[in-house]
Deep mutational scan, measured.
Amino acid sequence: MSGIALSRLAQERKAWRKDHPFGFVAVPTKNPDGTMNLMNWECAIPGKKGTPWEGGLFKLRMLFKDDYPSSPPKCKFEPPLFHPNVYPSGTVCLSILEEDKDWRPAITIKQILLGIQELLNEPNIQDPAQAEAYTIYCQNRVEYEKRVRAQAKKFAPS
């Protein structure tokens, strides 16, 4: 494992614990031996107030490669969400998460999670990743928002 990646992720964890947006979660997972795995984080993004996503808490896994922060983490909703920019596998399609697009090593975990929260309610229809959600979003916004509200209710924190 890269010392650069681990040191950056340790800084990220410290900064997150000191200050993070209300309702968001970002925690490194534990290895079988109980030690912390900084390369694999369990996160959760709350649906934004005043949107059909409100009330939901959407679980996301963030996986970092050894060359982080040169390369972005892979962000994957578990379980996958109904959304035009979420692949059926759950992987998020967002330009700041793509090395050859808008990724920059200075982007923080907090910025990534806030960017994904923004994307939930403002899909990028130029870059669809899920045919069904994309089609319904474009053709029947009322039905799309109904499905999103049902999903938010399903993923409401207990």
Rank of each mutant, 00 (worst) to 15 (best):
N85P: 02
T35S: 14
D66R: 02
R17P: 04
G90R: 01
I109V: 12
P73T: 10
Q130G: 00
N37L: 09
R147F: 03
L6Y: 15
V27E: 04
S2N: 08
E118H: 12
P52N: 15
S158Y: 01
R147Q: 12
S7F: 02
I125F: 10
D19H: 07
E12V: 04
R17E: 03
S158D: 03
K49R: 14
K154M: 09
N140T: 02
E132M: 09
K14E: 03
S95D: 01
H83I: 03
P32K: 14
S70W: 09
D100G: 13
K146C: 11
V25L: 09
P52D: 11
A133G: 07
N140Q: 14
R8V: 14
P28H: 07
I96D: 11
A133V: 05
H20M: 00
H83A: 03
P105T: 07
Q130R: 10
A106P: 06
S7G: 08
A152Q: 05
D33F: 01
K76C: 11
S7N: 15
C93V: 09
E54V: 09
Q11M: 13
F24S: 01
C93S: 00
S7P: 14
I107C: 15
V142T: 13
F58P: 06
P88T: 14
F24K: 01
I112E: 04
P32Y: 13
N124G: 07
S89Q: 15
A133I: 04
D102C: 11
L60R: 05
P52T: 12
K65Y: 09
P157A: 13
D127H: 03
D102A: 13
P32F: 06
H20F: 04
K74Q: 14
G50N: 15
S2A: 08
I109S: 04
E122Q: 12
L38N: 01
P69Y: 01
E42Y: 12
D19E: 14
A106N: 02
R104E: 06
P88D: 15
A133W: 03
I45V: 15
S2G: 15
F155E: 02
D67A: 12
K153E: 14
E99Q: 14
P157E: 06
S95V: 03
P21N: 07
L81G: 04
C75L: 15
E98T: 08
K14M: 05
K49L: 06
G115V: 00
Y68F: 09
W53I: 03
Y137R: 03
Y144R: 02
K49Y: 09
E99F: 09
I136R: 06
D127E: 11
K153L: 10
E118M: 10
E78C: 07
E122P: 02
L120V: 06
T29S: 14
N85C: 04
I116R: 05
A131I: 04
D102L: 04
S71G: 15
Q130Y: 06
W103A: 01
L114F: 11
G34H: 14
E12Q: 09
G115S: 01
F77G: 00
G47Q: 06
I96L: 11
H20S: 01
L38M: 06
C93L: 04
Q139I: 08
W103N: 01
L57M: 09
G47D: 06
V92G: 01
D19T: 15
F155Y: 12
P80G: 13
R13F: 02
V142Y: 13
R61E: 10
L119Y: 14
Q151R: 00
P72Y: 00
K14Y: 06
K110N: 09
S158R: 11
P72E: 09
E12D: 00
P79L: 12
E42F: 10
P21A: 01
P79I: 15
P79R: 15
T51N: 02
A26R: 03
V27F: 03
R141K: 10
A44M: 14
K101H: 14
I96Q: 06
E54Y: 07
V92Y: 04
N124K: 01
K154P: 01
P105D: 01
T91C: 15
G3D: 14
T108C: 14
E78S: 11
Y87V: 07
A15D: 15
L57W: 08
T51V: 02
T108G: 10
C138D: 09
V86L: 04
A15L: 12
R141M: 15
A26Y: 01
F64N: 06
A10K: 15
D102T: 06
K76N: 15
K14A: 02
K14H: 05
G34Y: 05
S7R: 08
L114H: 12
A156H: 12
S71M: 06
F77Y: 03
S158P: 13
A133M: 02
G47H: 07
P105C: 12
A131P: 10
N140W: 01
Q11L: 13
S95M: 01
Y68K: 00
S70E: 09
L113V: 12
P69W: 06
N31K: 11
P80C: 06
L97C: 15
F155S: 10
P46R: 07
Y144S: 00
K110C: 06
D66Y: 08
W103T: 03
G34N: 07
P73N: 02
L114D: 09
Y134F: 08
I109W: 08
E78L: 10
G115C: 06
G34W: 07
K146Y: 12
N85S: 11
F58A: 06
C93H: 04
N40I: 07
R61T: 13
L94R: 00
E145H: 02
P73Q: 02
K76H: 15
E78V: 15
G90N: 02
A152T: 08
K101F: 11
A133K: 04
P128F: 01
L94Y: 04
A106Q: 05
R8T: 08
F82L: 05
E145L: 14
N124P: 04
R61V: 10
L57I: 10
T91P: 14
Q130L: 12
I107R: 06
A10S: 10
D127K: 00
L119K: 02
C138H: 08
K74L: 15
V27L: 12
E132I: 06
I45F: 07
L120A: 06
K74T: 15
Q126H: 10
L119N: 04
P105W: 03
G55L: 10
K146L: 10
K18A: 05
K110M: 06
T91D: 06
V86N: 00
A15W: 08
G47P: 01
P21M: 06
A129N: 00
R147G: 04
P52C: 10
E132S: 08
V148T: 04
Q111G: 15
E145I: 09
P123R: 02
E78I: 10
A152G: 07
R17M: 03
